[in-house]
């Protein structure tokens, strides 16, 4: 006001008269509403300010963590080699029992609840089959933590390799055999009759009878009316066991060696197995004929 009076004198009499009679006031209800709104606004702001760091960011953090975990798992899954992934999915105990017949493992996975084979059918097993079954028994004894039921299953899985793949419905209903004596008898027979598996010279002949079971396991799964997923698992096990842990180049080198030795039939059989195990592997020119 003083500044206004400095640059503009105004009319003090009019101003005084006006101020003397200026008594209009807003309503009390209006006053209360305005003050209440002002206090409510302050309370709302304080409520927002009191929220802790965790309360303000927890939703964002949860979303970010979920996203990071999902991406990490996806990347890890993609970078895992395809063969290793399949093995992880199927998880066959190959390292624990290397002598177990692949077809038997496939049978285990495809039909874990299938009925045990009758003793009459297991008796006329071929010598090679006994060797494989015996190796399985030895392996089962070598793994002390393997439960008896798994031992029985691995013993039963040896039967299909001996030509017993077609289990009749009657056999499925036959009573199960006691574990102890059978395992011991088979194990002793295997140790006594089967050639040493560890010798490299005998490794190829030992693998030869197992080779037909690569496709056989799948056929068995189909014949037993198993689900496509079980057949797929059986195929994966058959493939992983057909290459026997060898690399593709190593396998081809063995086939070359067989050809050089004049064992063309075995070489052709090995090549067929190779093609089944590695269908997308580019074959060298010499094997394309």
């Amino acid at each position: 006001m003083s500044e206004r009076q400095q640059d503009f004198r105004g009319d003090p009499q009019v101003s005084a008269l006006y101020r003397e009679h200026a008594r209009d006031e807003p309503s009390a209800a209006g006053d209360e509403r305005i003050i209440a709104a002002a206090r409510a606004a302050v309370r709302a702001a304080q409520t927002v300010a009191r929220r802790t760091w965790w309360q303000r960011w927890r939703t964002t953090l949860a979303l970010a963590t979920t996203l990071v975990l999902t991406l990490t798992l996806s990347l890890l899954h993609e970078r895992q080699p395809a063969d290793q992934r399949r093995e992880t999915e199927v998880a066959p105990p190959r390292s624990a029992a290397p002598g177990v017949s692949p077809a038997g493992v496939a049978r285990d996975l495809a039909a874990p609840a299938s009925a045990p084979a009758a003793p009459e059918q297991a008796a006329p097993a071929a010598v090679a089959g006994e060797a494989v079954a015996g190796a399985g028994a030895v392996a089962s004894r070598a793994a002390p933590r393997q439960p008896a039921s798994e031992e029985r299953r691995s013993r039963q899985s040896a039967a299909p390799t001996t030509g017993q793949s077609g289990l009749s419905p009657a056999a499925a209903g036959s009573p199960p055999q006691s574990d102890g004596p059978f395992v011991d008898r088979q194990g002793v027979a295997a140790v006594g009759s089967a050639p040493p598996v560890a010798k490299e010279s005998n490794a190829a002949p030992a693998a030869a009878p197992a080779a037909p079971t690569v496709g056989g396991a799948e056929h068995e799964a189909a014949a037993l009316g198993q689900a496509p997923a079980a057949r797929k698992q059986a195929r994966a096990v058959a493939k992983s066991s057909a290459d026997d842990g060898r690399g593709a180049d190593e396998w081809l080198e063995e086939i070359r060696a067989l050809r050089r030795e004049g064992r063309s039939v075995e070489a052709a059989q090995q090549l067929a197995d190779f093609r089944r195990a590695h269908p997308e592997y580019p074959l060298p020119q010499e094997f394309r004929q």
Binding site: M1, E3, R4, D7, G10, S15, Y18, R19, A22
Partner: peptide, 8 residues
Amino acid sequence: AEEGGLTL
């Protein structure tokens, strides 16, 4: 000027 007390 009167109520608000504002200068020019």
